[in-house]
Design a protein around this nucleic acid. Structure first.
Length: 837
RNA sequence: GCCGAUGUGGUGAAACUGGCAAACACGCACGACUCAAAAUCGUGUGCCGCAAGGUUUGUGGGUUCGACUCCCACCAUCGGCACCA
């Protein structure tokens, strides 16, 4: 028999699959149940495929191949998330056009993916940088704009000085740019936003109905950051005039119950009160100086927790606490964020750490109004109580932020925090001084980018059609004129404004509304816009009239299983959910969540346990592994490493075990007797039973994406088969069938060598035979006080009395039981008997 | 600080609903084949002990006849969020 030669047979079968693409193409016929199994499509970088890609793609490939054999109608597509910064940066460095380098990278990725034997439906391949695709990205922009979900706003935005572009909040990590790790500063600019905040509540609420990892759901919840509190209106009183009309300062709090402890208010440096009451402010110069200093700081500097808090009192006015009618000073301080809540807070130093810190520094009064539960529980002697211990607890050196019982709070005293919040909110509402309010941390999605390699934003600005209002100056490109093609430019270098500006024939256009001369928007869209809807396009990739036909969406969507990295927890996954919810709201689709079930593949670390990186020189190139061991071995190795979702370190030494496994499978063929037909059937009950148990185990494990244990079950079967001199061909064929999704090339090769004309993937997935897996003889564990002391081999189904009798006859058991009183016997049928003495 | 996850041999790990801890592999040791080596096959391999036996799932406690699994407290590592009022 010839040796197992993966390099040879893998090429052969890859060619075969390419010649018969219908094997893995999605079937449009309606009879079968559909299954949409999707990988997060890759960004085709110049570095090629990473072993991390291989892990996720192999998992989804096994699952798809299995479901296909199981009779499901599979949609398992692949495409390219091709727009984006790196291609442009590469262009700047090398002088190669981004379009050109991207196509080259796509070619490399395609070859690599094919060399892994992944069963994609290549007829549905998409490329987000192709006009056929981004036409519809632009259509989505217009759709959102038309429905009031895309708007232009002059605002403080994140700006990366190195990438020379604005960024979304989600793309700023710890104050630095997610891409280049340079510091992000804040700039005031007019930009395009998508109104994702409109869906904040649904984006939180609907997480409950998704089969997603808990950690991902919580991460999204944290990001959206819902908090339930109240708005309180403080009347602002000028000391000079004694009235500022009916001017109110709105503050947001989650601790309304502490309102009686409010000793001052704080506004953010950007707060409008500073503009609107400018004339009343006595120390306006000092205030202006502080504001200017604050504006110079980046968010990173302003949110530095280590740093001491700073602020300036606004002299000349006071805020009136609506509950106590007390007048309290107002401060401006940059520890209050302008973008959250109302940009102003009531300060309760006794029950908020930040206010406490600030109050200590500026010597402001600290008034305790909550008796924490934990202090209530401390027993006190009668003397203390007589001396009024409760009120003695106004500890001025400590700050209690937990809930408790109200004190010094007028008619609300003695109420529990929770109850007090309810009552106080009611009072505010009744008196029109505020009331309950929910706020979210989520901000609208800034989608403009001052960069070249992206989909142009499809709008025109027309002076003729202009009014003073910004939004009406915008003239959307009519749908019929899409796509707005990305023009060629000579210089891509980011310079702070879009490189598209340098192409006059692109910029200067006729207004589609009035025909007058107008200017085109030159910014491009964030690449995450392209990837927020790609899973719809796979349902109908060639459609020229719609982003996807309604009936095709109905047929394939939503995605049944989505596999990809954790890094997209709050970016791609949140944006895609937003797009889906917008489509749903405006009647395009009848579901409101895109990905029913989501799983992440863990990070594949380098052998040293660190992250793989070019600079550390510890990157494993999958091509080299394929060349040395074969794609089947690489696939098996990555699946065998451990649970899919765990991060795990690469270990080249261990690969050999999977190679050995496949070689043994290969060699087993020689143990099939020449006269195979005579042996066919169920003439080896022991092996048959083992085989059917393995089928059951492998099936269950694939269903639960536990590929590591599925492989070990097959290894055990092979170990068992090796002991047999004559392996029935039917048994061997079943082994090959269940191995096929994992190691498709070797499976096809062996399958055809057994005389089959058709691909093994046209076989039906085997079902285990319940009769065959029933054990006739079983092992019962004999325990004494819960410790295993002996084992009994018995026929299945033995009763307690028989087992007890047998167990007590055993010498090992006698030793422990003799002369002792058996107090209790625990008997679990077919499992164990435990004597308690 | 808040939220989430993880912690088991020399290594990757398994034990799914509380019932034989360490399956399956890697590595290692010894043996067979060989002039020799590789490959392959066989045996052994948590720790202590010559053995009988004892002991072991991050630590400490609890529930239970019985705990890797459930509960409480703590420690460590990783990930997300974080001056969000």
């Amino acid at each position: 028999m010839e040796k197992y030669n993966p390099q040879e047979i893998e090429k052969k079968w890859q060619k075969y699959w390419a010649d018969y693409p219908e094997l893995f193409e999605a079937d449009e016929k309606p009879e079968k149940a559909k299954f949409y199994c999707l990988d997060m499509f890759p960004y085709p970088s110049g570095d090629g495929l990473h072993v991390g890609h291989v892990e996720g793609y192999t998992a989804s490939d096994i699952y798809s191949r299995y479901q296909r054999m199981n009779g499901k109608n599979i949609l398992h597509p692949i495409g390219w998330d091709a727009f984006g910064l790196p291609a442009e940066n590469f262009a700047i460095k090398s002088g190669v056009q981004p379009a050109e380098s991207t196509q080259k990278n796509i070619k490399t990725f395609t070859e690599q993916i094919k060399s892994l034997g992944l069963s994609y439906d290549w007829s549905r391949e998409i490329d987000t940088s192709s006009p056929e695709y981004y036409k519809w990205t632009q259509w989505f922009f217009l759709f959102l704009h038309e429905n009031g979900l895309a708007y232009r706003k002059y605002a403080k935005v994140n700006w990366c000085e190195s990438c020379k572009t604005v960024l979304a909040n989600e793309q700023v990590e710890d104050g630095v740019c997610e891409r280049c790790k340079n510091e992000v500063i804040q700039k005031d600019m007019e930009q395009w936003f998508f109104k994702i905040t409109d869906f904040a509540e649904d984006l939180i609420k609907d997480l409950d109905k998704l089969d997603w990892p808990e950690s991902t759901k919580t991460a999204q919840k944290n990001w959206i950051g819902k908090s339930e509190g109240a708005v309180i209106k403080f009347k602002v009183q000028s000391e000079k005039l004694k009235v500022v009309g009916d001017y109110f300062l709105e503050t947001f709090t989650t601790r309304l119950d502490t309102i009686y402890g409010c000793t001052y208010c704080v506004v953010a440096p950007e707060h409008k009160v500073l503009e609107e009451t400018r004339n009343e402010i006595e120390n306006i110069e000092e205030i202006d100086k502080y504001i200017n200093q604050a504006k110079k700081k980046t968010d990173l500097q302003r949110t530095d927790l280590q740093k001491e808090k700073t602020g300036v009192e606004i002299k000349g006015m006071k805020a009136v606490n609506p509950f106590t009618k007390e007048e309290v000073p107002i401060f401006v301080a940059d520890y209050v964020l302008s973008t959250y809540g109302t940009g102003a807070v009531m300060a309760v130093p006794a029950h908020d750490e930040r206010d406490f810190e600030f109050a200590k520094k500026y010597n402001l009064p600290i008034k305790n109004v909550i008796l924490p539960k934990k202090l209530l529980e401390i027993p006190r002697n009668m003397e203390d109580i007589a001396a009024g211990a409760k009120t003695e607890l106004r500890v001025e050196s400590e700050c209690f932020t937990c809930d408790g019982e109200l004190i010094n709070s007028g008619k609300y005293s003695n109420l529990a925090s929770e109850k007090a919040r309810e009552e106080m909110a009611k009072w505010l509402e009744k008196n029109n001084l505020g009331g309950k309010k929910i706020t979210y941390k989520l901000r609208d999605w800034l989608i403009s980018r001052q960069r070249y390699w992206g989909a142009p934003i499809p709008v025109i600005y027309c002076k003729n059609c202009s009014t003073l209002e910004l939004s009406s100056r915008v003239v959307p490109i009519p749908e019929n004129d899409l796509p707005v093609l990305l023009p060629e430019v000579k210089d891509y270098r980011p310079k702070g404004t879009s490189p598209l500006e340098t192409n006059p024939s692109f910029v200067n256009v006729k207004c589609p509304k009035c025909g007058g001369s107008a200017k085109r928007e030159t910014d491009t869209m964030d690449t995450f816009v392209c990837s927020s809807w790609y899973f719809f396009r796979f349902a109908d990739p060639g459609n020229k009239k719609e982003f996807a036909a309604k009936e095709k969406i109905k047929k394939w969507l939503p995605v049944d299983l989505y596999i990809g990295g954790k890094e997209h927890t709050v970016l791609h996954l949140l944006y895609s959910r937003f797009f889906t919810k917008a489509l749903h709201k405006f009647g395009y689709i009848d579901f409101d969540e895109p990905f029913t079930k989501l799983r992440h593949q863990g990070i594949v670390l380098a052998e040293d346990g660190r992250k793989m990186s070019k600079s550390l020189g510890n990157v494993i190139n999958p091509d080299e592994i394929v060349e040395k061991y074969g794609a089947d071995v690489l696939r098996l190795y990555e699946m065998f490493m451990g649970p899919l979702e765990d991060s795990k370190a690469w270990n080249t030494k261990s690969i050999i075990g999977l190679k050995r496994f496949l070689e043994r499978v290969w060699r087993l063929k020689s143990q099939i007797p020449a006269d195979a037909k005579a042996l066919a059937g169920k003439q080896n009950p022991k092996l048959n039973s083992f085989l059917h148990k393995t089928i059951k185990k492998v099936t269950e494990d694939i269903e639960n994406l536990r590929f590591n244990t599925a492989i070990s079950a097959m290894m055990m079967l092979v170990n068992e088969m090796e002991k047999e001199n004559n392996i029935p061909i039917t048994n061997y064929q079943l082994l090959i069938t269940i191995l096929a999704p994992f190691a498709p090339h070797i499976a096809e090769e062996i399958w055809s060598s057994l005389g089959h004309k058709n691909s093994v993937f046209l076989e039906k997935w085997p079902e285990h035979d319940i009769e065959l897996i029933k054990d006739e003889e079983i092992t019962i564990i004999v325990q004494i006080n819960g410790k295993m002391r002996d084992q009994l081999k018995l026929a299945a189904g033995a009763g307690e009395e028989d087992v007890k009798k047998m167990a007590l006859e055993s010498g090992k058991v006698k030793k422990y039981v003799e002369g002792k009183n058996i107090r209790k016997i625990i008997f679990v049928k077919d499992r164990l008997i435990n004597f308690v003495i």
